[in-house]
């Protein structure tokens, strides 16, 4: 089934927008199995939009999205988790009046993940011990860091092959950010492929294999994470150096 040679995820010539407004003009990128890849770009560049196209929340007007060799461009959002892609959206988007445990459980809602839901829950609670203490607390009452962990854990509940992470460090203190990135690294080590959007360019790139830079809806640069970190233009534009 797996097309071993090709990338796990491949976007080719993606265009997309909101109503009359075109946000993406030409996005092509690929993520190979086992990689952690970062998307970098200024506010409004189109990073979130790119993830939305992948997870089926927004329909591309041109181009194709291939996952594991299959064209998934036209799949609706609700069919995506079953394929093995989890999207952890920007701003966490938890179910505020449900407990931590109920939130996590919904992560394994899709038919493929359902049978393993119990085991997945134990896994997540092991990975995020802090959530174990708070499993009966309403998600809306958690701290920002805890909420982010619930969001990531919820994404992992589906046992995805590809995890899309949109700005996991948003609004978190440096210490918590560090913890979150450590978890993402753990996740990568477990064999989950990760496509991460990060404003925090240094942290993002330091845990990544490769990176893409998006400007005004176009990929303008890509390469190995280490190379990007050394690049003068990137240092000037995103690191203020």
């Amino acid at each position: 089934m797996t097309a071993a040679a090709g990338p796990l995820l491949e976007l080719a010539g993606i265009r997309a927008g909101y109503g009359d407004f075109q946000a993406l003009f030409d996005i092509s990128l690929e993520v190979r199995a086992g990689e952690i890849v970062t998307l970098i770009g200024a506010n409004g560049a189109g990073k979130t939009t790119t993830l939305r196209v992948i997870s089926g929340s927004l329909r591309a007007t041109a181009g194709t999205v291939r996952f594991d060799g299959h064209d998934i461009t036209q799949l609706p959002a609700h069919a995506i988790p079953e394929r093995g892609i989890s999207h952890v959206p920007e701003g966490r988007q938890l179910f505020p009046h449900m407990t931590v445990e109920e939130n996590l459980d919904l992560g394994a809602y899709n038919r493929r993940s359902r049978p393993r839901a119990r085991a997945a829950l134990d896994d997540q609670l092991a990975l995020f011990p802090r959530l174990k203490e708070r499993r009966r607390q309403l998600a809306g009452t958690l701290s920002g860091g805890e909420q982010q962990m619930v969001a990531i854990a919820r994404g992992l509940m589906a046992a995805p092959r590809l995890l899309l992470l949109d700005e996991p460090s948003l609004g978190l203190s440096p210490k918590i950010t560090e913890e979150v990135f450590a978890r993402v690294q753990d996740i990568g080590k477990r064999g989950v492929t990760v496509l991460i959007v990060e404003q925090n360019v240094v942290d993002g790139l330091s845990i990544s294999d490769r990176g893409y830079v998006i400007e005004n809806g176009r990929v303008v640069m890509h390469g190995a994470a280490a190379a990007l970190l050394r690049d003068d233009k990137i240092r000037a534009a995103y690191l203020g150096l």
């Binding site: 997870s55 609700h78 959206p89 919904l106 919820r154």
Partner: peptide, 19 residues
């Protein structure tokens, strides 16, 4: 559970694979 999820966050519900 799907109903409650939609009620609380429509977007997130769709990301969970809820039709």
């Amino acid at each position: 559970r799907a109903l409650r999820a939609i009620a609380q966050n429509r977007y997130a519900a769709s990301l969970m694979g809820i039709h």
